[in-house]
Design a protein around this nucleic acid. Structure first.
Length: 855
RNA sequence: GGGUGAUUAGCUCAGCUGGCUAGAGCACCUCGUUUACACCGAGGGGGUCGGGGGUUCGAGUCCCUCAUCACCCACCA
C-alpha cells in the first residue's frame, strides 16, 4: 500500500487503535524480558469529560508504558474511574438545580441510584476519549472505585484499622460546609486571606474589681464562650486568673484561665474561649475541662438554646445583632481592621464552620510515622526529588483524618449503632440494610459514607486484587505513580501510608509529579474565565500524536506551563516529516525483500548514520528510563530531522544504500513510537515490511556498536559542505567549483560534496586561485572571482579574532599550574586538543587572509 | 507564620552528579520551485545565565545573602 502525500491523522487513528485492541497488544505479556512494569492510572472523576490536564497525565503514563512494553516487559497500564464522592454529588446537584430540584427532594438511596446512572454515561464517554488519546491500557482491567472489589477492600482496611484501634469515633470539631451539609478533611478546606474586623469586647469581672477586654473576629460565637484565657506569664492579667467574668448578653459567668496557647502580643492578650466553634479553643477546653456550648447548628443558624433574639439568625446576621447589642450596652470598646485567613468550602466558597460533630477518624500518627521512615530511607524515587521532602514535611504535621461524609454518593460506612446504647458501635458489612439484629440487639447503620480519598488511596493494591491474585503478586508494587502536584498530599501520601499499612510494602517504586497545563498566557484554566482548552478539537485538527508531543515537549516535572499551540503545530510538523521520510524510503526501497536484515554499510555516510542511530538510541533509552520525556523527544527530533532527513537522506539521493535507509527508518519508528504511537504504527502497517507485525509490541532497538572512525569521514564532509554553504550564502554566489591539487579524499567524495553544497563540481587542478576553505586541513578552494574574495575579508578577520580569543583562554587555562595539577587528566587533555584544533584553524584563516589581502 | 520551587535569547523552556567557546523550539532577518516534505530547504542575527558576596584550578551548575514571582501547608483569636 502506498503512503499518501500528507499525513491525515484522523483517517487512520481509530483503525489503528482498533488493531491494537483486537491484537491484544495491551494485555500484559512477557516478550523477551522477565521484568514487569505497571502503572495504575489515577482514576479521573467519572463526572465530566477529560480535560487537557488529563491529556498530559495520560500521555506521560502511556509513553512510559509503551516504552517498557517494547523493552519486552510484561506491562500493565490499568485504567479506572473515580466516583469522586463529594465532587460528583456537587456536579449532580447542579444538574438537579437546572431541573428546579435539589438533593432534599430525595432520600440518600434515591440520590445514590440517580448519580450511579449519571456517572455510567460519563464513564463510557471518557473511555472513548482515552482511546482517542492512544492510551495503551488494558481495558479488560477497567476498575471503578465503587466496584465490589474496591468496596470490599476498603471495608477490610477499615475493619483492620478498627480491630487494631486506629479508628475512633469522636465528637470533634470538623470542618463543616453549611451549604453542602457535609464535613471535610482539613486538606479540603481552602484558606483565603480576608479583610475582617477585630472587635474588642469588655467582659466585666463578677466581683466588680475591673474588666477584661477580649479581642475576637467572631463576636457571634461569644454566646458559646465558656472561659476567657490569658497567658500564664502575662503580668497584666495574672491577678485575674481564677476569677470569673460575667459574659455579656447572657446570664452566664465564666472563669478566667491561664493557657500558654494565648499569644501575649496579639489583640489584648485575652482570648474568649468558644470550645464548640474553634479548634484552638476546643483543645484549651479539653485541657481545662470546660463545657462545650453549641451556638451554630449544621445549617449555619443560631441554635434554639441561645438567647431568644438571636435564634435562627444566620451567622452573618447574628454577628451584626451581637455587635449592635454590645455597642448599645457599652460592652464594645473598639473595632479594628484585620486581615486574617478564613477557611472556605473549596466548591461553593461558603465559610467553613468548625462544628462539633460525631465522626469517624483515623489515628494517623502510626501510619505517618511508617511513611516518613520509608520516605527518608528513599525507598521511593521522586521526580522531581524535591517532592519527597515536601511530602515528609506534610506528614510530620499531619492531623487525624476525618473519614465521614454526610453525602449520598460514596461507600457506606460499615458501622452500626445500637439503638438502645449510643456508645455501642459494631462493624458489619450489611450496609444495604438500615437496621440489623445481632443477638437480641438492634443496630442502625451510620448514614454517612467514606471520604472518597479512602477508596482512591487503596487504589494501587485494591485494583490488583490484594492479597492473593496473580496480578498483585506480579505487579505490586507498581513501577510508577504519575500524578499532579495538587494531590501529592491528599493522595500520594495516603497511598503510601495505606499501602505500607495494608500490604507491608511500598505501593509504588517511583512517583512522577507533573505540573499544570495552564492557559496560553500562563494563567489558570477555568471554565468561568472561558480559557479552557478542550483536547478533542486539538486531536481533530492536529492529530492525537501532535497533541501528545506538543503537551509533553519543553516541559519538566512539576512545572506549570501554558498550553502552547505552536508546540502542537511543531509536533504535527514532526509527524509529517516522519511521514514524508517514510514516503521517500518507500520509494527508494520499492518492494525489495530482505529489508529487515542487518544493515550493510558501505560509505562514510552509512557508517555515520548508524553511528548516530546508536548514540541517539542510547541517550533516548537513558532518558526514558529516568522519565525525561521532553529530552527524549528532543533527541529523537534531531535524529530524524537533522541527521536522517537533512544529511543522510540528502546524501543518499546520489548513492543510496537501501539496507541502511530502511534499517534507520525502522529504528526511528521504534524510538518514536512511545511518543507518537499513531503515525509510527500507521507507517509500520502501511509499509508492512513484516507480516502481521505490530509496532506497539515490536522490540525496542539496541543497535550494535557503530564504527566511529568510519563515521568521522562523513563529519569531515559535513564540515566542508557547511563552510561552502556559508561562504556561498555570505557572498551570494552560485555556479562555483571546488578545486584542489589532487586530495584523495576530495576525489573520492567529489560528487557527494558537490551535490550537498550545490557546486558545479569538485575537481583536481594543477593550479588556480580563489577562496581557500579554512575549516578543513585539506587544501581546497572555491573558484571565487578575485574582487568578491575581498568582500569576505571582514568575515575572515572576525573568524580569526574569535579563534584568537578561544586560544587565549585555553592557553591561560593550561598555564595555570593548579588547573593542570588538579583537574582530571582527560579534562586537561581535552583542553590541549581544543587548543591544538583552534590553533590549526587560526593558522588556516590567517594564511587565507594573508593570501588575498596581498594579492 | 512555615515549606518548596522558579528567575538563562523577543516568547516558552532545557542545561542531570561543577569542565560551556551557554542550547532547543517558536518568532525574527537573508536566500531558495533542489529525485520525500513550503506542515519544506540553506545561511544568519540575538544571552555579561535576577543583583551582590563566597567556595574552587574552574560556577548557569555548589554555599550565603538580597530582590521578584509562583505553588503548597498552617487552628493566631
Amino acid at each position: 500500500m502506498k503512503l499518501s502525500k500528507v499525513y491525515e491523522p484522523n483517517q487512520y487513528e481509530s483503525d489503528i487503535y482498533a488493531l491494537w485492541e483486537s491484537s491484544e497488544a495491551f494485555v500484559p505479556k512477557h516478550r523477551g524480558s522477565d521484568a514487569t512494569y505497571s502503572i495504575v492510572m489515577p482514576p479521573p472523576n467519572a463526572n465530566a469529560n477529560l480535560h487537557i490536564g488529563y491529556a498530559l497525565t495520560a500521555s506521560l503514563e502511556d509513553i512510559a508504558a509503551r516504552y517498557h512494553r517494547m523493552k519486552g516487559e510484561a506491562t500493565l497500564l490499568l485504567p479506572g474511574a473515580d466516583h469522586a464522592g463529594f465532587e460528583t454529588q456537587v456536579v449532580y446537584e447542579k444538574h438537579l438545580a437546572k431541573e428546579g430540584k435539589s438533593r432534599f427532594d430525595f432520600t440518600r438511596e434515591q440520590l445514590y441510584e440517580q448519580i450511579l446512572e449519571f456517572v455510567a454515561k460519563n464513564k463510557d464517554n471518557f473511555a472513548t476519549q482515552f482511546r482517542q488519546m492512544g492510551v495503551s491500557c488494558d481495558w479488560s482491567q477497567f476498575t471503578f472505585t465503587l466496584d465490589d472489589k474496591i468496596v470490599k477492600r476498603v471495608n477490610a482496611t477499615f475493619k483492620k484499622m478498627w480491630d487494631e484501634g486506629l479508628i475512633y469515633r469522636g465528637e470533634r470539631l470538623v470542618n463543616f460546609c453549611t451549604f453542602h451539609g457535609t464535613a471535610f478533611a482539613d486538606i479540603e478546606v481552602e484558606h483565603k486571606e480576608e479583610q475582617g474586623s477585630l472587635w474588642h469586647i469588655r467582659y466585666p469581672l463578677v466581683d466588680g474589681s475591673g474588666e477584661v477586654v477580649v479581642a475576637t473576629t467572631r463576636p457571634e460565637t461569644m454566646l458559646g464562650d465558656t472561659a476567657v484565657a490569658v497567658h500564664p506569664d502575662d503580668k497584666r492579667y495574672s491577678k485575674f486568673i481564677g476569677k470569673t467574668v460575667k459574659l455579656p448578653l447572657t446570664n452566664r459567668e465564666i472563669p478566667i484561665i491561664a493557657d500558654a496557647m494565648v499569644e501575649v502580643e496579639f489583640g489584648t492578650g485575652a482570648v474568649k474561649i468558644t470550645p464548640a466553634h474553634d479548634p484552638n479553643d476546643f483543645d484549651v477546653a479539653k485541657r481545662h475541662d470546660l463545657p462545650f456550648i453549641t451556638v451554630i447548628d449544621h445549617e449555619g443558624k443560631i441554635t434554639h438554646e441561645m438567647p431568644k433574639n438571636y435564634r435562627s439568625l444566620s451567622v452573618a446576621d447574628a454577628r451584626k445583632a451581637v455587635v449592635n447589642d454590645l455597642e448599645s450596652q457599652q460592652y464594645l470598646v473598639k473595632t479594628e481592621d484585620l486581615t486574617h485567613n478564613v477557611g472556605h468550602c473549596y466548591k461553593c466558597g461558603t465559610v467553613i464552620e468548625p462544628l462539633l460533630r460525631e465522626q469517624w477518624f483515623i489515628d494517623m500518627k502510626p501510619l505517618a510515622k511508617q511513611a516518613i521512615k520509608t520516605l527518608k530511607a528513599e525507598k521511593i524515587a521522586f521526580y522531581p526529588t524535591a517532592k519527597r521532602d515536601q511530602l515528609i514535611a506534610y506528614l510530620e504535621g499531619l492531623h487525624d483524618w476525618n473519614i465521614s461524609r454526610q453525602i449520598a454518593w460514596g461507600i457506606p460506612i460499615p458501622a452500626f449503632q445500637n439503638i438502645d446504647d449510643p456508645e455501642d458501635w459494631i462493624y458489619d458489612e450489611r450496609t444495604q440494610e438500615e437496621f440489623i439484629t445481632v443477638g437480641t440487639k438492634t443496630y442502625r447503620r451510620d448514614p454517612d459514607v467514606f471520604d472518597t480519598w479512602l477508596s482512591s488511596s487503596s487504589w494501587p493494591y485494591a485494583t490488583l486484587d490484594y492479597p492473593d491474585s496473580d496480578d498483585f503478586k506480579q505487579f505490586y508494587p507498581l513501577s510508577l505513580m504519575e500524578t499532579g502536584g495538587e494531590i501529592l498530599q491528599p493522595w500520594v501520601s495516603r497511598m503510601i501510608m495505606l499501602g505500607l499499612y495494608v500490604t507491608g510494602d511500598i505501593p509504588f517504586e517511583a512517583v512522577y509529579i507533573h505540573g499544570y497545563v495552564m492557559a496560553a498566557d500562563g494563567s489558570k484554566m477555568s471554565k468561568s474565565v472561558g480559557n479552557v482548552v478542550d483536547p478533542l478539537p486539538v486531536i481533530e485538527q492536529y492529530g492525537s500524536d501532535a497533541l501528545r508531543i506538543g503537551i509533553i515537549a519543553n516541559r519538566a516535572p512539576a512545572v506549570n506551563r501554558g498550553y502552547d499551540v505552536a508546540k502542537v503545530e511543531g509536533a504535527r510538523n514532526f509527524c509529517n516529516k516522519l511521514w514524508n521520510v517514510a514516503r521517500f524510503i518507500e520509494d527508494k526501497a520499492g518492494d525489495q525483500a530482505g529489508l529487515r536484515a542487518e544493515p550493510d554499510p558501505k560509505t562514510p555516510a552509512d557508517y555515520w548514520m548508524l553511528y548516530k542511530l546508536q548514540q541517539t538510541t542510547e541517550v533516548v533509552t537513558r532518558y526514558l528510563d529516568t522519565y525525561r520525556f521532553s529530552e527524549a523527544y528532543d533527541e529523537i527530533y534531531h535524529l530524524l530531522w537533522d541527521d536522517y532527513a537533512d544529511w543522510y537522506i540528502e546524501a543518499s539521493k546520489g548513492e543510496s544504500n537501501v539496507s541502511v535507509l530502511a534499517y534507520t527508518l525502522e529504528t526511528i519508528l521504534k524510538l518514536v513510537h512511545p511518543l507518537a504511537p499513531f503515525v509510527s504504527e500507521t507507517i509500520w502497517q502501511t509499509l508492512a515490511w513484516e507480516q502481521e507485525s505490530i509496532l506497539a509490541v515490536a522490540t525496542w532497538p539496541s543497535p550494535s556498536k557503530a564504527n566511529a572512525k568510519q563515521a568521522a569521514d562523513f563529519e569531515e564532509i559535513k564540515t566542508i559542505v557547511g563552510e561552502i554553504r556559508a561562504i556561498k550564502s555570505a557572498l551570494k554566489l552560485n555556479g562555483l567549483h571546488l578545486y584542489h591539487r589532487g586530495e584523495a579524499f576530495l576525489n573520492e567524495h567529489a560528487d557527494l560534496i558537490a551535490r550537498l553544497s550545490r557546486l558545479e563540481g569538485v575537481q583536481a587542478v594543477e593550479a588556480g586561485q580563489g577562496l581557500h576553505l579554512t575549516q578543513t586541513n585539506l587544501n581546497c578552494w572555491l573558484d571565487v572571482p578575485q574582487e568578491t574574495t575581498r568582500a569576505y575579508a571582514a568575515d575572515l578577520q572576525a573568524q580569526a579574532k574569535q579563534q584568537e580569543q578561544v586560544i587565549t583562554s585555553l592557553q591561560a587555562r593550561l598555564k595555570n599550574k593548579s588547573y593542570v595539577n588538579n583537574a582530571p587528566k582527560e579534562i586537561v587533555q581535552q583542553t590541549k586538543d581544543q587548543l591544538k584544533e583552534a590553533e590549526g584553524l587560526l593558522k588556516n584563516i590567517q594564511t587565507e587572509y594573508q593570501r588575498f589581502s596581498t594579492s
